[in-house]
């Protein structure tokens, strides 16, 4: 309990610092918001344009599919707002040796590495993905229980998405240069933006059980539509635990390799 309180306290300070920083770079603030808006628009419109020419893709109608896209946007939104900066920071800190200071702080080091940058600008945009989620949810005819579950499932899916990406980021201990890894990380992220049934058998299995990016969105959304499909969701929870453990293992091994470039 005391530990949890400490982390909350520290996080409050992160938020205050990021807010202070954002307010001194106003142009930056606006541009970050624009990035998100462009991204949301292009994601939704791409799918919408395809549906201009087909009635269903797999089992899903336009509304269901766009609900899925919105679900992934809600995860992306949390991701952009809370973590996205961390991967790039991490690689910079590894290369320059600036990681030293974070290693010295008496707190779980992964916390400051991945969570000390918050984008307050993105917080303003919360209405966009959630507005879409509600709009397409209504159209897709979500049940009352599903509405209650929705926020929780977004958080669970977000947790898995972040765990996968942090584990991939651990590879930077070995590669040092980061563009390739970050590129790979983002590509995997974009794989999860399409429902798992569009992937052929082998790919679907691989990205469900080995690198489980496909269940991030597909599992919870399928469950929201039909409670009998609960197994993938259970897999999501299991994978979260597995990835927590893997991150811990790789973090420890990676740290032994850290050379802390000096000046």
């Amino acid at each position: 309990m005391r530990v949890l309180k400490k982390y909350l306290h520290v996080y409050q300070a992160y938020f205050a610092m990021n807010l202070a920083q954002a307010s001194s770079f106003r142009m930056h603030f606006v541009l970050v918001i624009l990035v998100d808006i462009f991204f949301y628009a292009s994601s939704l419109l791409s799918v919408s344009f395809i549906y201009d020419h087909v009635d269903t893709i797999g089992p899903w109608t336009r509304e269901e599919f766009l609900f899925f896209v919105s679900f992934m946007l809600a995860i992306d939104h949390l991701h952009m707002m809370l973590v996205a900066h961390g991967y790039w920071e991490f690689s910079r800190e590894l290369r320059t040796g600036d990681l030293d200071f974070k290693l010295l702080k008496p707190i779980g080091t992964l916390f400051p590495i991945f969570f000390d940058r918050v984008r307050p600008g993105s917080a303003l945009l919360i209405f966009v993905p959630w507005g879409c989620l509600i709009y397409f949810g209504v159209q897709a005819g979500l049940s009352p229980l599903s509405w209650v579950l929705l926020p929780f499932l977004v958080v669970v899916a977000f947790t898995l998405a972040v765990s996968i990406q942090i584990l991939i980021a651990m590879v930077m201990f070995w590669t040092i240069e980061s563009i390739g890894i970050n590129f790979l990380r983002m590509q995997l992220q974009s794989l999860s933006r399409w429902p798992d049934f569009v992937y052929l058998y082998f790919f679907r299995k691989f990205f469900t059980f080995f690198i489980p990016v496909l269940i991030v969105g597909s599992a919870p959304v399928k469950f929201l539509f039909d409670y009998s499909v609960w197994q993938p969701l259970a897999l999501v929870c299991a994978m979260i635990l597995l990835f927590f453990w893997l991150i811990r293992v790789f973090w420890r091994i990676g740290l032994r390799r850290y050379e802390s470039a000096s000046s």
């Binding site: 400490k6 306290h9 520290v10 409050q12 300070a13 992160y14 205050a16 610092m17 202070a20 920083q21 001194s24 770079f25 702080k105 008496p106 707190i107």
Partner: peptide, 18 residues
């Protein structure tokens, strides 16, 4: 942190070190 006053960074340290 470069872009904010030192006082704000100190507050973070206070919370780190409890």
């Amino acid at each position: 942190w470069w872009d904010i006053p030192a006082r704000t960074s100190f507050e973070l340290l206070r919370r780190y070190y409890e």
